[in-house]
Simulated assay, not measured.
Amino acid sequence: MSSEPVVVVARCVPREGHAEQVEAAVLRAVAATHEQDAGCELYAAHQSVRGRPGIVIIEKWSSAELLQAHGTGDAFAALNGEVAELLAEPLDVMVLQPLPAGTDELGTL
């Protein structure tokens, strides 16, 4: 596995009438991830206001190994357990590879 940083974008779409429950679960997961998961450089929740609906979590991990550990950790398991029946579609997770351009500061996360 790579020791390069890994960026992830995850999107969850609450079922009708469950947006507040899903949002609360995501915010608990953000706090737990910040406290518990080694290698977390960024784990930030955002609400979609235009385009595809849902809550988006933008993540950056110091390595693929530590991202994998997060995926089997308590914070992620708790989130999955809380929202499993509340989502309109399966959690959409994209692991991204950078395409650096421009300056190092502005061209990569």
Rank of each mutant, 00 (worst) to 15 (best):
T108I: 13
E65I: 08
E20C: 00
E20R: 07
A84R: 14
A32W: 00
E59N: 09
S62F: 07
V95Y: 04
V56Y: 15
L91H: 04
R50S: 15
V30G: 03
R11Y: 00
E4G: 10
A88Y: 02
S48F: 08
A29K: 08
N80V: 13
Y43N: 03
A101S: 13
E41S: 07
E85M: 09
P53Q: 03
A75C: 09
G17Q: 11
P53K: 01
A44V: 15
E85A: 13
D37H: 07
M94Q: 09
V49D: 02
H18A: 08
E59S: 10
R28N: 01
M1R: 10
V8I: 14
G102K: 13
H70E: 05
V26D: 01
L91F: 08
L109P: 10
L91W: 04
Q47Y: 02
E35S: 14
E41Y: 03
G17P: 11
D104E: 14
A64T: 09
S62W: 07
E65R: 11
D104N: 08
C40A: 15
A44C: 15
A75H: 10
P53S: 04
L99D: 05
E16P: 12
L87A: 01
E89P: 00
T103K: 07
C12N: 14
G39S: 01
G107T: 14
E82Q: 14
K60F: 09
T108D: 11
G107N: 15
H46C: 11
E35Y: 14
V13H: 04
T33E: 01
A10F: 05
S63M: 06
L91P: 05
A25I: 06
V95C: 02
P98V: 02
L79S: 03
A38N: 06
K60M: 11
L87V: 02
L86R: 01
M94F: 07
S3V: 14
L96N: 08
L96G: 13
T103W: 06
A78F: 06
E82V: 10
E85K: 12
L99E: 05
V13E: 07
N80G: 15
R15L: 12
A38W: 00
A75Y: 05
A64G: 11
V83P: 03
W61Q: 13
S2D: 12
M1F: 07
H46L: 11
L86Y: 00
A38Q: 09
H34L: 15
G81H: 00
A78G: 06
H46V: 08
A31W: 03
V22N: 13
K60Q: 14
